[in-house]
Amino acid sequence: MLSYDATPFTMGPALLFCPADRPERFSKAADRSDAVILDLEDAVAPADKLKAREAILEQSGTGGLEPGRTIVRVNPVGTPEFELDLEALAKTPYRTVMLAKAESAEQLKALYGYQVIALCETAGGIVNASAIAAEPNVVGLMWGAEDLLASLGGLSSRNDDGGYRAVALHSRSAVLLAAKAAGKEAIDSVYVNIPDLDGLSAESHDAVASGFGAKACIHPNQVAVVRGAYAPTPEVVTQASELLDAAEAAGTGVFQFKGKMIDGPILKHAQATLRRAGHRFQGTDTPRGDS
Rank of each mutant, 00 (worst) to 15 (best):
Y94E: 01
E235P: 00
A47C: 13
D31I: 04
Q282E: 15
A35E: 02
G278E: 05
R22F: 07
P13E: 05
S241C: 08
A88R: 07
N137K: 03
S104K: 03
G278F: 09
R73G: 01
D31E: 14
E87F: 13
D188F: 04
E146Y: 10
D196K: 01
S60M: 07
G64Y: 12
A246S: 10
A131M: 03
G264V: 04
I218S: 02
A249N: 11
A202D: 08
T10H: 07
S210R: 12
I56Y: 08
G289A: 14
V223M: 08
Y4E: 09
A35I: 03
L86M: 14
P23V: 06
V127W: 11
Y114M: 02
A246N: 04
S27H: 12
S173N: 15
Y114T: 01
A105H: 10
G125T: 01
G144R: 00
G163A: 14
A45D: 10
A131H: 02
E106C: 06
L152Q: 09
K268M: 13
S189I: 12
L152N: 07
L200N: 00
E81V: 09
A118D: 03
G124C: 04
T96W: 00
G162C: 10
Q271L: 02
E103P: 06
L200V: 05
G228T: 06
A166D: 14
M11N: 11
D39E: 07
E135W: 00
R53D: 01
A209Y: 05
I132T: 04
Y4N: 09
L244I: 09
F255G: 02
T122N: 06
S151T: 11
E135G: 00
R288I: 12
K51T: 14
P287T: 08
G125C: 05
E185V: 04
A229D: 01
E248H: 11
I132W: 01
V116Y: 01
G278C: 13
D161V: 13
S157P: 12
G289R: 03
I126G: 03
A178P: 04
G12H: 00
P19A: 06
Y230D: 01
E135D: 00
I218Y: 02
R165S: 09
P220N: 06
E24R: 15
D34M: 09
R227K: 11
H170C: 06
L57W: 07
L155V: 15
A168E: 02
S3H: 15
L86I: 14
E185Q: 05
R22C: 13
G162A: 11
A129L: 08
M142G: 06
Q115K: 14
A102M: 02
G228W: 04
A20D: 02
A179P: 00
V97Q: 01
D34F: 06
R32C: 10
A209R: 14
L244S: 02
L57S: 11
P80E: 07
Q107I: 03
I71Y: 00
T273I: 15
A6Q: 12
I218P: 00
G163H: 11
Q222I: 03
R172L: 13
R53G: 05
V236L: 12
A186C: 11
A249I: 11
V254A: 15
C18F: 06
D161K: 13
K28C: 07
D34T: 08
A181F: 07
